[in-house]
Design a protein around this nucleic acid. Structure first.
Lengths: 196, 196
DNA sequence: AAAAAATGTTGAACCAGTTCAACATTACGG
DNA sequence: CCGTAATGTTGAACTGGTTCAACATTTTTT
């Protein structure tokens, strides 16, 4: 028995909008539960991202591969976060990212069409997705600010402070590529700290 | 007579949502026309940003001031763009940015309360602001990607290519701080190009 | 039209972070 | 529990971009 499927996303949505029991049912019905194995891909470059994903359990990353073949992590996600290539998903463009499971994960997915449907069904659902987008804007703005204003070590410290739950869920090289530095340099930052 | 006040923002909104003449009137009525002089501030750190601004004519920038007193430009805006400290405006938090006019400018402002009102009035307005936020997400995601994957020179080239209209509207040091490099280095990039 | 303020340029020293290569450790499937 | 793949560490040379300082040019103000 899956205890949390309806309640988890329902509880999440209820943080932002007030739903009647019927609305709650309609809302949760739009999502499909899926399980993915570690290293499985959900989105790949040049294909259109068909879904956005809500993480019930697990960890995922979105990344682009640069000219010289190095990964650049654009987004990290664990429980209660959303992930996709949003430019691809929202504007029906070919994706530029991979979205990959970093752990075996348990997700809820919603398709672009079902999301449209939901938004057409009720005002409140439209509001919900507006709020999601606004929160993303605020989040990314913070990321732009830290990337412009902080050194590599400060960015790492900020990351540990703001997202302590993520630090132990992702390999070092993923965190390094998220923070815009090399694995080697992050290794040095960390070992440097242990001495003092 | 101000020819473009209602039509400009109305034309803009009509790109995304279909409005009846009455809705159009309600929508445009929520905005107030203002003029600002070069170097005038619209948002300042520690105060809550009360408005978001649509640029009818002019150029503005949003920036944070780092520990050592250097500017870091977070956003640039010319005609048909929006600007504010969105984290402050949307979530009623103290701003971390300055928003300043770079030219004498002609703007439409909407207050947080009037925007709420508008969103409560009609579904379509809710949709409009959702789309605005989604476009911001896609825009900022592109910025994060270029900042992680490109060198200083490539970032400048990309900027010139994507936003040619902005290049001549902002002083060099503003563009440099937007692209995450020093004025001196951007000067060298530009002069290097003129020979090479 | 002169003075002042803002913006842009150049050289030379410097440094935060990268690169490359070799090795160490941990995790994991069979 | 062994072997292999994935992840992490360390040193040493290197480089893309910064810093600082002095000067040049453009724009704005009076």
């Amino acid at each position: 028995m899956t205890i949390h499927t309806p309640s988890s996303i329902g509880r999440y949505a209820s943080k932002f909008i007030d739903l009647t029991p019927e609305e709650l049912t309609t809302f949760t019905a739009a999502f499909k539960e899926i399980k993915v194995k570690k290293r499985q891909f959900l989105v790949q470059p040049n294909f259109i991202a068909q879904h956005r994903y809500f993480i019930l359990k697990g960890a995922l990353r979105a990344y682009v591969v640069g000219e010289e073949g190095q990964d650049h992590t654009i987004q990290l996600a664990i429980e209660d976060w959303w992930i996709s290539d949003y430019n691809s998903y929202m504007f029906r463009q070919p994706a530029s990212m991979f979205v990959m499971a970093v752990e075996d994960s348990h997700l809820l997915q919603i398709s672009f069409e079902d999301e449209l449907q939901l938004k057409a069904t009720s005002y409140k659902f439209e509001t919900f997705f507006r709020i999601l987008a606004e929160r993303s804007v605020a989040f990314m703005q913070r990321r732009v600010i830290t990337s412009l204003t902080q050194t590599a070590e400060q960015r790492y410290d900020t990351f540990v402070e703001k997202y302590p739950a993520m630090v132990n869920r992702f390999p070092q090289y993923v965190i390094a590529s998220y923070l815009g530095m090399t694995t080697e340099f992050l290794s040095r930052i960390r070992n440097h700290k242990m001495k003092g």
